[in-house]
Design a protein around this nucleic acid. Structure first.
Lengths: 356, 356
DNA sequence: TCGATCAATGTAAGCGCTTACATGGAATTC
DNA sequence: GAATTCCATGTAAGCGCTTACATTGATCGA
């Protein structure tokens, strides 16, 4: 012991060139040298401490601390062939619902010692594809994706690479990948049924571009189905596409009002659009819901405090995120193959919707 | 050519064990073999195409496509010692202002071919520290941090590791790292001056825990300074700490109302708390601003559509994100050492604040 | 007391890539 | 036409880690 200490002290005083204390960041080998063990032992100390005897461990950990050693993640990943990392690609960070689900997702992952890599695709298929490749080449052990609709080649690629995925925000037993989410069609149809049962016939909807967005297209289909069931002509539905945002919802509402026939209700693709529509309607001197009813989707906090409070579809986003994490972890560990998980939604009837 | 084609075809038909088309994901060496060049050439094709003659490049790219080759990021990072990656740690994803700034940050980075790694610390110093280490060990070329206040050891660590950082959301010429942001003290003091000039004397504030949050503590200091300047006793300020969220703002308001002396104005640390406070006040039968005035901070979209519209401090978050990206890229490229950048804020006086 | 057994540690071969340096052939110069 | 230059490509040495396998010394049963 004493001898070693002395040895180290001398080393620190008399620095020969080849073991100079230069500012290169310390490596495993440096730690091993300081602790007078092999690199294998240091590695084991860090990764499976119980394979190493207490005395050695203490010695190694001391060396780690002394050098301020931090393992090089890339080298580790290269050698170990897994990263303890899971990736997630969401359409945008600016939408609170994704942020919230992701937060829950991350919390659940963190509990299992897995770290999360996030990317956002701005709702663009090409960007998403690029990000999937990036995530894979970074060695993500699994990936969370939003919505099922994408080029089949991507699913093939992922399968070939052996990277498990979970698709969230949709529930689709037909899909050949595990999904966790709700049935957008049924949920929106339920709301539309309610709207129609309250006497509304002329309906407008503000929706995201449904072309590459299966949540939006399914919700639209839900409205159409409800109308058709009620014997309402499809021409009584007017559709306005809009980007996400409060102002955008307001602009979309103006477009609707500019049409020759004014609808009695505006069903919005999400709460943010709905709140924007309500605000603009009020600015324009309309009363909500007396002059025009408005509905949303998601039931985020703002729905409750909007005036008037918003009729919407409640989606348990945190639960969905949590569930997605659970499934993905099981998949990565190959514990069992996950099947689809249905998240239940419910109608929240509030005063932004009234009888016609 | 013909010969090669034939050769490949035969290879695909007769698979010997050592070159079997097994499902191992293809490597640089596989591409090199297929294209009949060295691995160095393949690498050059991918990283600096102009060093390679057109003919060779075509051949290599064809091989890449045929194999569906995707480079292994970790191997590349290990060999090249840089990752073209920048990390950012924000307190939470659930706050739209961070999301928005981050979006702009990412857009700017993307334009320079840099990818972004995001982590969120849930406002916890220990988590943030862990994430900084993670980012460093993952080889981030630079890191964006929010707020200046943290253990000096962290700054030392970062410096030792040679990882440049930019601190956003504060403007502090004293700091020994580049900052980009606004002066939280001055901004809030300006608002408080306005409030006081409208006759308010008894002030309440809803704030995040200021202990580890220099934005919050500086804003609080701003209010105190304005009061002191106006000769108002510090005891006329009542402080309620609250977590982030609409409901939380509401609860905090209830605490304020439960106190013996009711303040005439509630100055909130951000718009979300303010909107929550307004909503709860209305629920409790109070009129805003007649019975109680409310102010916010940030000027997010919701401030405008709140009823009544919210008096707040406008912060150009996107600009701040963009500027942070620019600075960090310069730092990473060692183009020039960046100094502090001031982002100007402005008062938005709306009807949630009225004369006492 | 001796080999068998086992736990702790060491040895060294990669993981997939980049890049300094070596090489060889074509283009250029005189 | 020989010497020089230069450009395209190849060779091979790592980057920092993990892990299969080898080694060692201690422990144990007979």
């Amino acid at each position: 012991m004493k001898c070693n200490d002395l040895g180290n002290r001398i080393k620190n005083l008399v620095m020969t060139t080849d073991e100079a204390n230069n500012d290169r960041t310390p490596t495993l080998a440096d730690v091993a040298r300081l602790a007078k063990v092999s690199t294998a032992t240091v590695s084991r100390c860090l990764n499976s401490p119980d394979q190493v005897i207490e005395k050695t461990r203490t010695k190694v950990l001391a060396a780690v601390r002394e050098l301020g050693y931090a393992p090089n993640f890339n080298a580790r990943a290269l050698a170990a062939k897994h990263t303890n990392t899971i990736g997630a690609i969401i359409p945008t960070m600016e939408n609170a619902i994704f942020a919230r689900a992701l937060q829950a997702f991350q919390e659940e992952l963190g509990g299992s010692g897995v770290t999360l890599l996030v990317a956002s695709s701005s709702y663009r298929a090409d960007l998403e594809e690029e990000q999937i490749r990036t995530l894979v080449s970074r060695g993500a052990d699994g990936i969370l994706l939003i919505g099922y609709h994408r080029d089949p080649k991507i699913y093939e690629f992922l399968q070939r690479q052996g990277v498990p995925i979970v698709v969230a925000w949709v529930f689709d037993p037909q899909a050949d990948v595990p999904t966790v989410g709700f049935d957008n069609f049924t949920a929106m149809k339920a709301l539309a049924d309610q709207v129609i049962s309250m006497g509304h016939r002329r309906i407008a909807t503000i929706t995201a571009n449904p072309e590459y967005n299966d949540r939006a297209s399914e919700r639209l289909r839900g409205i159409r189905a409800a109308m058709s069931e009620a014997g309402i002509s499809a021409t009584d539905l007017s559709i306005v596409e809009s980007a996400y945002g409060i102002d955008e919802g307001g602009k979309a509402l103006e477009q609707i009002l500019a049409q020759t026939v004014r609808p009695s209700v505006v069903m919005c693709g999400n709460d943010v659009l709905a709140v924007g529509a309500i605000a603009r309607a009020k600015e324009l001197g309309l009363r909500v819901p007396e002059d025009i009813s408005v509905t949303g989707f998601d039931d985020i906090e703002i729905a409750k405090i909007s005036s008037p409070p918003l009729t919407t579809v409640h989606v348990p986003h945190r639960r969905m995120g949590k569930e997605a994490a659970r499934m993905l972890i099981n998949l990565v560990n190959a514990t069992k193959d996950q099947k689809n998980t249905l998240i239940e939604t419910s109608l929240k009837i509030r005063s932004s919707l009234s009888k016609r």
